[in-house]
Design a protein around this nucleic acid. Structure first.
Lengths: 160, 160
DNA sequence: TAGCAACAGTTGGTCGACCAATGATATTAT
DNA sequence: ATAATATCATTGGTCGACCAACTGTTGCTA
């Protein structure tokens, strides 16, 4: 109902009785659908959703110790460890001990991992195109801005 | 990565070269942060994120066979089965065989599950408030509309 | 009626994600 | 130097979510 617009400024979003947390619920559903769609695309290139983020980050920012990946991707350390173990098993990534600090291991893309990058970016492009079908540039800009604000709100409450 | 912001409304989102799938990536990050925040709130009432959706749905729509939950929540059947097993073990939900059709089992909230509903709704409200901090009603409306459009796009491509 | 397709749930496996606890190594304070 | 603390990564556990394969039922149809 009234999907595209004319939100009728008088209409209070919060009075839709169907859900108390309307935004949260919408976000939840969209995120799930998005993950499913991503999974289907990534499957074609033999990846699971989440792995492409790791590979993309490495391709873009170069080799990194795991703790950096943890910080920059905002993931739990154990998540990164296990994800990398799988990527390593698939031959897409390599972990070498840092000679300077024997605690750290440095992660690097293998040639095979690097080769995947084009297809990953293509998947991202297709997914975004599909997600934002019918969106004008203005819509996209608005959406991205709103999402960024949400992210900041959620991030700021994370440091309690 | 320009962590704090200055989203500078004029800035064209799509030309930031850092990410090919800007929308998808933003969505991914927001969704993850949102899930983390939800987890923290739900933890206070002894739930894991996702369970509250199930309980809320039952509270709102009444008893249901599992296949209905699958359809209406858009989840996989096995996800629902396992989630319900846990909720049942926690005494929040009850599953009784349908006398009319021996394949189906009907899911119902227990008294204990019903009692949780208020706190669940409170969590949702708090989470939404926290997520949308600083948002005007117009912002919320715009966001919800955009999310609904995304959902429709993603849903439509799901039936291939 | 016999047989087969469709439907309802379950189990087993994998992945992403988290938390908690642990073993190694570095850093720093004392 | 030694002890206390912090950091880096790993393991083990749980949950949500998926897919694939499987058991029972029900329904349809030949």
């Amino acid at each position: 109902m009234d999907p595209t617009g004319t939100p009728a400024p008088g209409t209070d979003v919060c009075d839709t009785p169907e859900h108390v947390g309307a935004v949260g619920h919408a976000l939840f559903r969209v995120a799930r659908a998005h993950r499913v769609a991503a999974a289907r695309l990534l499957r074609e290139i033999g990846l699971y959703p989440g792995q492409e983020i790791m590979l993309g980050h490495l391709a873009e920012h170069g080799d990194a110790r795991q703790s950096r990946l943890v910080a920059e991707l905002g993931l739990d350390a154990s998540t990164v460890t296990k994800s990398l173990q799988r990527l390593e098993r698939q031959g897409l990534v390599e972990r070498r001990p840092d000679p300077g600090d024997r605690r750290v291991s440095v992660v690097a893309l293998t040639a095979q991992g690097r080769d995947l990058q084009d297809r990953i970016e293509d998947s991202w492009r297709r997914l975004d195109a599909l997600t934002c079908e019918g969106f004008t540039d203005t819509d996209r800009t608005a959406l991205t801005a709103l999402l960024h604000r949400l992210e900041r709100n959620l991030a700021s409450c994370e440091e309690d």
